[in-house]
Protein backbone atom coordinates (compact mmCIF):
# COMPACT_ATOMS: atom_id res chain seq x y z
CA UNK A 1 0.00 0.00 0.00
CA UNK A 2 1.23 3.51 -0.80
CA UNK A 3 0.56 6.80 0.94
CA UNK A 4 -2.83 7.94 -0.38
CA UNK A 5 -2.01 11.55 0.51
CA UNK A 6 1.15 11.58 -1.61
CA UNK A 7 1.03 13.20 -5.05
CA UNK A 8 0.04 10.87 -7.88
CA UNK A 9 3.52 11.13 -9.41
CA UNK A 10 5.08 9.92 -6.16
CA UNK A 11 2.69 7.01 -5.93
CA UNK A 12 3.33 6.05 -9.59
CA UNK A 13 7.08 6.19 -8.95
CA UNK A 14 6.77 3.98 -5.88
CA UNK A 15 4.63 1.47 -7.74
CA UNK A 16 7.00 1.27 -10.71
CA UNK A 17 10.04 0.96 -8.44
CA UNK A 18 8.44 -2.03 -6.78
CA UNK A 19 7.45 -3.66 -10.06
CA UNK A 20 10.85 -3.06 -11.66
CA UNK A 21 12.95 -3.98 -8.66
CA UNK A 22 14.51 -0.53 -8.55
CA UNK A 23 15.33 1.50 -5.47
CA UNK A 24 16.56 4.59 -7.29
CA UNK A 25 13.74 5.12 -9.80
CA UNK A 26 13.31 8.71 -10.93
CA UNK A 27 10.53 10.20 -13.07
CA UNK A 28 10.83 13.16 -15.40
CA UNK A 29 8.66 14.94 -17.96
CA UNK A 30 5.46 13.82 -16.24
CA UNK A 31 2.47 15.06 -18.25
CA UNK A 32 -1.19 14.56 -17.38
CA UNK A 33 -3.45 14.45 -20.43
CA UNK A 34 -7.06 13.62 -21.34
CA UNK A 35 -8.63 15.26 -18.30
CA UNK A 36 -12.31 14.79 -17.65
CA UNK A 37 -13.86 12.76 -20.48
CA UNK A 38 -12.23 9.40 -20.46
CA UNK A 39 -9.61 7.55 -18.48
CA UNK A 40 -7.08 9.82 -16.83
CA UNK A 41 -3.73 9.48 -18.55
CA UNK A 42 -0.16 10.33 -17.55
CA UNK A 43 2.90 10.19 -19.81
CA UNK A 44 6.28 10.00 -18.12
CA UNK A 45 9.90 8.93 -18.52
CA UNK A 46 11.61 6.81 -15.90
CA UNK A 47 15.23 5.97 -15.21
CA UNK A 48 16.41 3.37 -12.74
CA UNK A 49 19.11 0.85 -11.93
CA UNK A 50 18.39 -2.84 -11.58
CA UNK A 51 20.96 -5.58 -11.22
CA UNK A 52 23.65 -2.99 -11.75
CA UNK A 53 22.27 -1.96 -15.15
CA UNK A 54 20.97 1.55 -15.90
CA UNK A 55 17.53 1.62 -17.55
CA UNK A 56 15.53 4.37 -19.28
CA UNK A 57 11.94 3.86 -20.41
CA UNK A 58 8.85 5.87 -21.19
CA UNK A 59 5.54 4.85 -19.62
CA UNK A 60 1.88 5.68 -20.11
CA UNK A 61 -0.41 5.27 -17.10
CA UNK A 62 -4.19 5.18 -17.54
CA UNK A 63 -6.42 5.34 -14.48
CA UNK A 64 -10.15 4.65 -14.32
CA UNK A 65 -11.61 7.70 -12.57
CA UNK A 66 -14.89 5.88 -11.99
CA UNK A 67 -17.03 8.46 -13.77
CA UNK A 68 -15.63 8.46 -17.31
CA UNK A 69 -17.61 8.11 -20.49
CA UNK A 70 -18.26 4.54 -21.66
CA UNK A 71 -17.22 3.27 -18.25
CA UNK A 72 -19.98 0.66 -18.42
CA UNK A 73 -18.38 -0.87 -21.51
CA UNK A 74 -14.72 -0.12 -21.03
CA UNK A 75 -12.67 -2.11 -18.54
CA UNK A 76 -8.97 -1.38 -18.17
CA UNK A 77 -8.37 -5.05 -17.37
CA UNK A 78 -9.85 -6.01 -20.73
CA UNK A 79 -7.74 -3.34 -22.45
CA UNK A 80 -4.67 -4.79 -20.80
CA UNK A 81 -5.53 -8.31 -22.00
CA UNK A 82 -6.22 -7.06 -25.54
CA UNK A 83 -2.92 -5.17 -25.72
CA UNK A 84 -1.07 -8.21 -24.40
CA UNK A 85 -2.76 -10.42 -27.01
CA UNK A 86 -1.83 -8.03 -29.82
CA UNK A 87 1.87 -7.78 -28.91
CA UNK A 88 2.72 -10.80 -31.06
CA UNK A 89 0.79 -9.48 -34.07
CA UNK A 90 1.67 -6.84 -36.69
CA UNK A 91 -0.89 -4.42 -35.21
CA UNK A 92 1.00 -1.38 -33.91
CA UNK A 93 0.05 -1.09 -30.23
CA UNK A 94 1.77 -0.01 -27.02
CA UNK A 95 3.25 -2.84 -24.98
CA UNK A 96 1.18 -3.46 -21.86
CA UNK A 97 3.34 -3.79 -18.76
CA UNK A 98 1.13 -3.91 -15.68
CA UNK A 99 -2.54 -3.83 -14.69
CA UNK A 100 -3.51 -2.98 -11.15
CA UNK A 101 -7.18 -3.82 -10.42
CA UNK A 102 -7.13 -2.59 -6.82
CA UNK A 103 -7.56 0.89 -5.39
CA UNK A 104 -4.65 0.92 -2.94
CA UNK A 105 -2.02 2.52 -5.18
CA UNK A 106 -3.78 5.24 -7.17
CA UNK A 107 -7.24 5.12 -5.62
CA UNK A 108 -8.66 3.36 -8.69
CA UNK A 109 -7.69 0.58 -11.14
CA UNK A 110 -4.97 1.54 -13.60
CA UNK A 111 -2.96 0.24 -16.52
CA UNK A 112 0.73 0.85 -17.24
CA UNK A 113 1.86 0.60 -20.83
CA UNK A 114 4.61 1.71 -23.16
CA UNK A 115 4.95 5.36 -24.04
CA UNK A 116 5.06 5.15 -27.83
CA UNK A 117 6.66 7.89 -29.90
CA UNK A 118 4.18 9.97 -31.84
CA UNK A 119 1.48 12.61 -31.70
CA UNK A 120 -2.29 12.33 -31.73
CA UNK A 121 -3.80 15.58 -33.01
CA UNK A 122 -7.57 15.97 -32.75
CA UNK A 123 -9.09 15.95 -36.24
CA UNK A 124 -11.79 18.39 -35.12
CA UNK A 125 -9.59 21.42 -34.51
CA UNK A 126 -7.84 23.68 -37.02
CA UNK A 127 -4.36 22.58 -35.87
CA UNK A 128 -5.28 18.93 -36.31
CA UNK A 129 -6.83 19.54 -39.73
CA UNK A 130 -3.65 21.29 -40.86
CA UNK A 131 -1.52 18.43 -39.49
CA UNK A 132 -3.48 15.75 -41.35
CA UNK A 133 -3.76 17.80 -44.53
CA UNK A 134 0.01 18.23 -44.63
CA UNK A 135 0.62 14.55 -43.82
CA UNK A 136 -1.85 13.46 -46.50
CA UNK A 137 -0.01 15.64 -48.99
CA UNK A 138 3.31 13.94 -48.26
CA UNK A 139 1.67 10.63 -49.24
CA UNK A 140 2.88 8.15 -46.62
CA UNK A 141 0.28 8.43 -43.85
CA UNK A 142 -2.77 7.52 -46.02
CA UNK A 143 -1.27 4.12 -46.78
CA UNK A 144 -0.09 3.60 -43.22
CA UNK A 145 -3.59 4.47 -41.91
CA UNK A 146 -5.12 1.84 -44.19
CA UNK A 147 -2.42 -0.74 -43.48
CA UNK A 148 -2.95 -0.52 -39.72
CA UNK A 149 -6.65 -1.33 -40.19
CA UNK A 150 -5.69 -4.15 -42.56
CA UNK A 151 -3.36 -5.48 -39.85
CA UNK A 152 -6.18 -5.44 -37.29
CA UNK A 153 -8.59 -7.25 -39.61
CA UNK A 154 -5.94 -9.81 -40.58
CA UNK A 155 -5.21 -10.78 -36.98
CA UNK A 156 -5.78 -14.47 -36.31
CA UNK A 157 -7.85 -13.60 -33.26
CA UNK A 158 -8.33 -17.18 -32.11
CA UNK A 159 -4.59 -17.83 -32.24
CA UNK A 160 -3.99 -14.54 -30.42
CA UNK A 161 -6.34 -15.64 -27.65
CA UNK A 162 -8.84 -12.85 -28.24
CA UNK A 163 -11.92 -15.06 -28.18
CA UNK A 164 -12.40 -13.97 -24.56
CA UNK A 165 -14.00 -10.88 -26.11
CA UNK A 166 -16.97 -13.05 -27.08
CA UNK A 167 -17.54 -14.69 -30.42
CA UNK A 168 -20.84 -14.11 -32.20
CA UNK A 169 -22.30 -16.77 -34.45
CA UNK A 170 -22.00 -16.23 -38.17
CA UNK A 171 -25.08 -14.60 -39.66
CA UNK A 172 -26.99 -11.85 -37.91
CA UNK A 173 -25.73 -12.44 -34.38
CA UNK A 174 -22.98 -9.81 -34.44
CA UNK A 175 -25.16 -6.81 -35.35
CA UNK A 176 -27.90 -8.00 -32.99
CA UNK A 177 -25.36 -8.16 -30.16
CA UNK A 178 -24.07 -4.67 -30.90
CA UNK A 179 -27.58 -3.23 -30.90
CA UNK A 180 -28.28 -4.92 -27.58
CA UNK A 181 -24.98 -3.68 -26.11
CA UNK A 182 -25.58 -0.05 -27.00
CA UNK A 183 -29.22 -0.31 -26.02
CA UNK A 184 -28.08 -1.39 -22.58
CA UNK A 185 -25.96 1.76 -22.35
CA UNK A 186 -29.02 3.84 -23.27
CA UNK A 187 -31.08 2.03 -20.62
CA UNK A 188 -28.35 2.64 -18.04
CA UNK A 189 -28.54 6.41 -18.59
CA UNK A 190 -32.03 6.50 -17.12
CA UNK A 191 -32.99 8.97 -19.86
CA UNK A 192 -36.06 8.20 -21.97
CA UNK A 193 -34.97 7.81 -25.61
CA UNK A 194 -36.24 10.32 -28.13
CA UNK A 195 -38.81 8.58 -30.39
CA UNK A 196 -36.54 9.15 -33.40
CA UNK A 197 -33.95 7.04 -31.60
CA UNK A 198 -36.61 4.43 -30.89
CA UNK A 199 -37.45 4.43 -34.61
CA UNK A 200 -33.76 4.06 -35.45
CA UNK A 201 -33.29 1.13 -33.04
CA UNK A 202 -36.44 -0.61 -34.31
CA UNK A 203 -35.23 -0.12 -37.90
CA UNK A 204 -31.81 -1.52 -37.04
CA UNK A 205 -33.37 -4.54 -35.36
CA UNK A 206 -35.65 -5.14 -38.34
CA UNK A 207 -32.86 -4.94 -40.93
CA UNK A 208 -29.91 -6.73 -39.31
CA UNK A 209 -27.30 -7.70 -41.93
CA UNK A 210 -25.69 -11.10 -42.10
CA UNK A 211 -21.95 -11.60 -42.00
CA UNK A 212 -20.00 -14.69 -43.00
CA UNK A 213 -16.63 -13.47 -41.73
CA UNK A 214 -15.52 -12.48 -38.25
CA UNK A 215 -12.45 -10.35 -37.56
CA UNK A 216 -11.04 -8.30 -34.72
CA UNK A 217 -12.92 -4.99 -34.99
CA UNK A 218 -11.41 -1.90 -33.32
CA UNK A 219 -14.77 -0.17 -33.06
CA UNK A 220 -13.55 3.43 -33.31
CA UNK A 221 -10.85 3.41 -35.99
CA UNK A 222 -10.12 7.01 -36.97
CA UNK A 223 -7.56 9.75 -36.65
CA UNK A 224 -7.58 11.00 -33.10
CA UNK A 225 -7.37 7.40 -31.88
CA UNK A 226 -4.02 6.78 -33.60
CA UNK A 227 -0.51 7.86 -32.69
CA UNK A 228 1.38 9.24 -35.68
CA UNK A 229 5.17 9.28 -35.85
CA UNK A 230 7.19 10.22 -38.93
CA UNK A 231 4.03 10.03 -41.06
CA UNK A 232 3.24 6.49 -39.97
CA UNK A 233 0.77 5.01 -37.49
CA UNK A 234 3.03 4.17 -34.55
CA UNK A 235 0.22 2.88 -32.32
CA UNK A 236 -3.50 2.20 -32.49
CA UNK A 237 -5.01 3.52 -29.25
CA UNK A 238 -8.37 3.55 -27.47
CA UNK A 239 -9.12 -0.14 -27.29
CA UNK A 240 -12.42 0.51 -25.55
CA UNK A 241 -15.02 -0.68 -28.06
CA UNK A 242 -13.19 -3.57 -29.71
CA UNK A 243 -15.18 -6.68 -30.54
CA UNK A 244 -15.04 -9.79 -32.68
CA UNK A 245 -17.37 -9.03 -35.55
CA UNK A 246 -18.08 -7.93 -39.09
CA UNK A 247 -15.11 -6.13 -40.73
CA UNK A 248 -17.57 -3.75 -42.38
CA UNK A 249 -18.26 -2.30 -38.94
CA UNK A 250 -14.82 -0.65 -38.96
CA UNK A 251 -14.91 0.09 -42.69
CA UNK A 252 -18.25 1.86 -42.29
CA UNK A 253 -16.73 4.07 -39.61
CA UNK A 254 -13.79 4.96 -41.85
CA UNK A 255 -16.13 5.77 -44.74
CA UNK A 256 -18.42 7.82 -42.52
CA UNK A 257 -18.71 11.58 -42.77
CA UNK A 258 -18.58 11.64 -38.97
CA UNK A 259 -14.82 11.31 -39.04
CA UNK A 260 -13.74 14.14 -41.27
CA UNK A 261 -14.16 17.86 -41.29
CA UNK A 262 -14.01 20.25 -44.25
CA UNK A 263 -12.37 17.64 -46.45
CA UNK A 264 -13.36 14.77 -48.71
CA UNK A 265 -10.44 12.71 -47.37
CA UNK A 266 -11.57 9.86 -45.13
CA UNK A 267 -10.54 10.52 -41.55
CA UNK A 268 -8.96 13.70 -42.96
CA UNK A 269 -6.13 11.79 -44.64
CA UNK A 270 -7.02 9.15 -47.21
CA UNK A 271 -8.85 9.29 -50.55
CA UNK A 272 -11.90 7.03 -50.69
CA UNK A 273 -10.83 5.04 -53.77
CA UNK A 274 -7.28 4.64 -52.53
CA UNK A 275 -8.55 3.36 -49.19
CA UNK A 276 -10.90 0.88 -50.87
CA UNK A 277 -8.21 -0.48 -53.19
CA UNK A 278 -5.58 -0.86 -50.50
CA UNK A 279 -7.96 -2.28 -47.92
CA UNK A 280 -9.44 -4.85 -50.30
CA UNK A 281 -6.00 -5.82 -51.56
CA UNK A 282 -4.57 -6.10 -48.04
CA UNK A 283 -7.41 -8.12 -46.53
CA UNK A 284 -8.95 -9.92 -49.50
CA UNK A 285 -12.28 -8.62 -48.19
CA UNK A 286 -14.58 -6.87 -50.66
CA UNK A 287 -16.20 -3.77 -49.19
CA UNK A 288 -19.99 -4.22 -48.92
CA UNK A 289 -21.55 -0.79 -49.34
CA UNK A 290 -25.01 -1.90 -48.18
CA UNK A 291 -23.55 -3.31 -44.97
CA UNK A 292 -21.56 -0.10 -44.48
CA UNK A 293 -24.69 2.02 -44.84
CA UNK A 294 -26.36 -0.15 -42.19
CA UNK A 295 -23.44 0.11 -39.80
CA UNK A 296 -23.28 3.87 -40.26
CA UNK A 297 -26.82 3.99 -38.88
CA UNK A 298 -25.70 1.74 -36.04
CA UNK A 299 -22.94 4.28 -35.36
CA UNK A 300 -25.66 6.95 -35.20
CA UNK A 301 -27.32 4.88 -32.48
CA UNK A 302 -23.95 4.56 -30.75
CA UNK A 303 -23.39 8.30 -30.94
CA UNK A 304 -26.80 9.00 -29.45
CA UNK A 305 -26.08 6.46 -26.69
CA UNK A 306 -22.70 8.07 -26.08
CA UNK A 307 -24.14 11.58 -25.73
CA UNK A 308 -27.00 10.30 -23.59
CA UNK A 309 -24.45 8.62 -21.34
CA UNK A 310 -22.50 11.88 -21.10
CA UNK A 311 -25.64 13.86 -20.31
CA UNK A 312 -26.70 11.26 -17.76
CA UNK A 313 -23.33 11.37 -16.01
CA UNK A 314 -23.72 15.10 -15.49
CA UNK A 315 -27.42 15.01 -14.65
CA UNK A 316 -26.86 12.36 -11.98
CA UNK A 317 -24.05 14.38 -10.40
CA UNK A 318 -21.45 11.66 -10.99
CA UNK A 319 -19.40 14.01 -13.16
CA UNK A 320 -19.56 17.79 -12.81
CA UNK A 321 -17.83 18.73 -16.07
CA UNK A 322 -20.15 21.18 -17.86
CA UNK A 323 -18.93 19.92 -21.23
CA UNK A 324 -20.92 16.77 -20.50
CA UNK A 325 -24.07 18.82 -19.91
CA UNK A 326 -23.53 20.51 -23.27
CA UNK A 327 -23.78 17.14 -25.04
CA UNK A 328 -27.54 17.07 -24.42
CA UNK A 329 -27.78 19.28 -27.49
CA UNK A 330 -25.61 16.94 -29.55
CA UNK A 331 -28.28 14.24 -29.46
CA UNK A 332 -30.72 15.97 -31.87
CA UNK A 333 -27.86 16.57 -34.32
CA UNK A 334 -27.04 12.86 -34.41
CA UNK A 335 -30.72 11.96 -34.69
CA UNK A 336 -31.18 14.44 -37.52
CA UNK A 337 -28.51 12.62 -39.54
CA UNK A 338 -30.15 9.29 -38.78
CA UNK A 339 -33.62 10.56 -39.64
CA UNK A 340 -32.38 11.84 -42.99
CA UNK A 341 -30.76 8.49 -43.72
CA UNK A 342 -34.03 6.75 -42.84
CA UNK A 343 -35.87 9.02 -45.25
CA UNK A 344 -37.35 11.72 -43.09
Amino acid sequence: MTDAAAPVETRIAGYLAGKLGADDLRLRDVQRIAVGWSHETWLLDASWTADGVQHERGFCVRRDPGNALLREMSDLGVQFDVLRALEATPVPTPRAYFFEPGVDVLGAPFLVMEKVAGVCPSPWGSDGRRFYEAAAGRGVLPGSFTDALVAIHNVDWRAAGLDFLGVPALGTDFAAREIAKWRSLIDATGIQPDPVLTDLICWLEANVPSTDRLVLVHGAYRTGNLLIDDDRVSAVLDWETEVIGDPMYDVAYVLSELNRERTELLSNIVERDAFRRRYEQGTGIEIDDDACRYYQLLYAMRSAAFWMSATGLFASGRNTDLRLARTAWSIPVVLDNAARALGY
Partner: peptide, 17 residues
Protein backbone atom coordinates in the same frame (compact mmCIF):
# COMPACT_ATOMS: atom_id res chain seq x y z
CA UNK B 1 -45.62 9.39 -37.46
CA UNK B 2 -42.29 10.37 -38.96
CA UNK B 3 -43.73 13.64 -40.29
CA UNK B 4 -44.60 14.63 -36.74
CA UNK B 5 -41.26 13.40 -35.39
CA UNK B 6 -39.49 15.46 -38.07
CA UNK B 7 -41.26 18.58 -36.82
CA UNK B 8 -40.32 17.76 -33.20
CA UNK B 9 -36.73 17.23 -34.24
CA UNK B 10 -36.60 20.49 -36.16
CA UNK B 11 -37.72 22.36 -33.06
CA UNK B 12 -34.98 20.66 -31.01
CA UNK B 13 -32.40 21.45 -33.68
CA UNK B 14 -33.17 25.16 -33.37
CA UNK B 15 -31.06 25.11 -30.17
CA UNK B 16 -28.63 22.33 -31.01
CA UNK B 17 -25.88 24.05 -32.97
Amino acid sequence: VRSALRARLDRALAYAS
